[in-house]
Computed example of a mutant assay.
Amino acid sequence: MFATPVRLARGQPGFFRRSMDEFKRQAGIAIRLEGLHRPTRAFPLIYFDSPDSPDRCKIMSDATNFGGLSQASLSYVPGAKHREAEDGGRIVGGAGAGANGGTKELEETEEPAHALFKGSISTELPPNRADIQRSGFAAWRTRDRGYSLFGKLLWDIDPFAYLALRIKSDGRKYFVNIQTESIVPTDIHQHLLPTYTTGQWETVIIPFSAFVRTNYGMVVEPQKEMLRQKVRSVGIGLTDRVPGPFELCIADIYATNRPPTREVGREDSGFEFESQGGGMMGEIEPRQKKGEPERILI
Rank of each mutant, 00 (worst) to 15 (best):
L238C: 05
G277N: 04
I253D: 01
T214G: 04
R266A: 11
Y47H: 13
S75R: 14
M281D: 07
G68T: 02
D131F: 10
P194F: 00
G11I: 02
D62K: 03
R287P: 01
L153Q: 14
Q133T: 12
G28K: 08
S148E: 01
F150R: 12
E110H: 06
G102E: 03
A138V: 14
T214E: 10
T256D: 01
E263P: 04
E272N: 09
E294T: 09
A42S: 12
G237E: 02
R90M: 15
S73T: 10
G237S: 15
S50I: 05
L149I: 04
A95F: 09
G136V: 00
A139L: 08
I205L: 11
E263K: 15
A99H: 11
S135R: 03
A80H: 06
V220M: 12
E107H: 10
D62M: 02
L106T: 11
R262W: 09
H191N: 12
Q26T: 12
F150G: 08
D131K: 08
I132V: 15
A130C: 07
K173Q: 08
Q12R: 13
Y216L: 08
E221G: 08
W140P: 01
R262N: 14
A9F: 11
L154C: 10
L165W: 08
I157M: 00
R56C: 06
C249N: 12
V77F: 07
A130F: 10
I206E: 00
V6E: 15
Q26V: 14
Y162Q: 00
